[in-house]
Design a protein around this nucleic acid. Structure first.
Lengths: 198, 198
DNA sequence: GTCTATACGACGATAGAC
DNA sequence: GTCTATCGTCGTATAGAC
């Protein structure tokens, strides 16, 4: 609102760059793709491209952010395992972006890396959503409640991420099955005779 | 045995390089550590170091292999979750090597990358060991058997890897808890009245 | 604010002398 | 087996046109 005039075009260009970068990484993979190549596809010189970003790491982090938002925004109605399956199904088609995600996870070790903040905020947010889902299903009695939902959320996120690591080298791997198995493990154990059974 | 003479010194030097590299990556992290720095600590020039390896990627892959072997070799008597806990406890002290592992996982996407073969062989091997463990515990009745051990192994490896990803940005995270929770989830459900109960 | 041109230092890789 | 020298490319930094 407050920003008008010159900002308008710049912001549009910035988004264009991010989308082009996203596309290139998806097609040709993140490794071996230089910023000069990205700049060329935007009809820009390298410094021209860097005018919009503080560093390469900054650009990559924003690419990751855009990827996250669009992936989730495409299926806002899905929740719980359904949401996971939809996201995984798209990840299968863009291995380069999965590679980017994993690479950034490693780079984000450094607290000074811009992606550090990104992951530090995203993980709690994602786990929070999962906790909400789990609590709801626990109240319904559809999920065992002997382990607190906060701890289960850590496990579920780990399964989702870890499966991607295996899938990167074993493309034949079914990324949905492990999460399905997890949900099966979360089914409540057989009730004791005098519990809530009729 | 068969290799004598010139090979002897070369092999020793090669191992020395790998150990020095392992040490540097553990201390200063894998990123921002150039091969020239590794070479310097070996009293070698860069080409002198590269005489022993085909490429940087090749060297890194071998570092990863050495790390794997020594980590497992240090606790050969442990099995199942105990083995995992021991390995995790060492990983906590060397974040640089965890970072290296995750980075290599991403790079190994490319079938032409030397680490691709490494992971392609290691994952089935690790899962195989887990399957053996699970089968043993299933026979004892200590673990539920409604999901085949091969599928559970995928889930368990995913949890182990995925927890590391979260831990890289959230160092306060307890890496053992999720695996403990997984083991709790694997406990057999309460038996039906007419099962094997006396 | 937007962008090009140019240069810089460091990287991994390689050729060839010793 | 190890070196010096050099190459091409990377991300980055600065000067200045528009």
């Amino acid at each position: 609102m407050a920003k008008r005039g010159p900002y308008e075009k710049g912001e549009a260009k910035r988004r264009e760059i991010l989308e082009v970068a996203l596309e290139i990484f998806a097609q040709e993979g993140y490794r071996g793709t230089s910023l000069r190549k990205v700049a060329a596809r935007c009809n820009l010189s390298l410094p021209g491209l860097m005018h919009y970003f503080e560093s390469k790491e900054d650009l990559l982090t924003q690419v990751l952010r855009v990827r996250d938002e669009t992936a989730r925004g495409r299926h806002p109605e899905l929740t719980g395992p359904d949401s996971y399956r939809a996201i995984v199904r798209e990840g299968t088609k863009t291995p380069g972006l999965v590679e980017l995600f994993v690479s950034m996870s490693a780079a984000a070790s450094d607290p000074g890396h811009p992606a550090h903040r990104h992951f530090a905020e995203r993980y709690p947010a994602i786990r929070g959503e999962i906790v909400d889902y789990l609590r709801r299903r626990m109240d319904e009695g559809a999920i065992r409640s002997d382990i607190p939902p906060e701890r289960l959320a850590v496990v579920l996120v780990a399964v989702a991420d870890g499966v991607q690591l295996q899938w990167l080298t074993e493309r034949s791997m079914d990324m949905e099955q492990p999460v399905n198995d997890m949900m099966a493990l979360l089914a409540p154990p057989a009730q004791n005779p005098g519990d809530t059974a009729h």
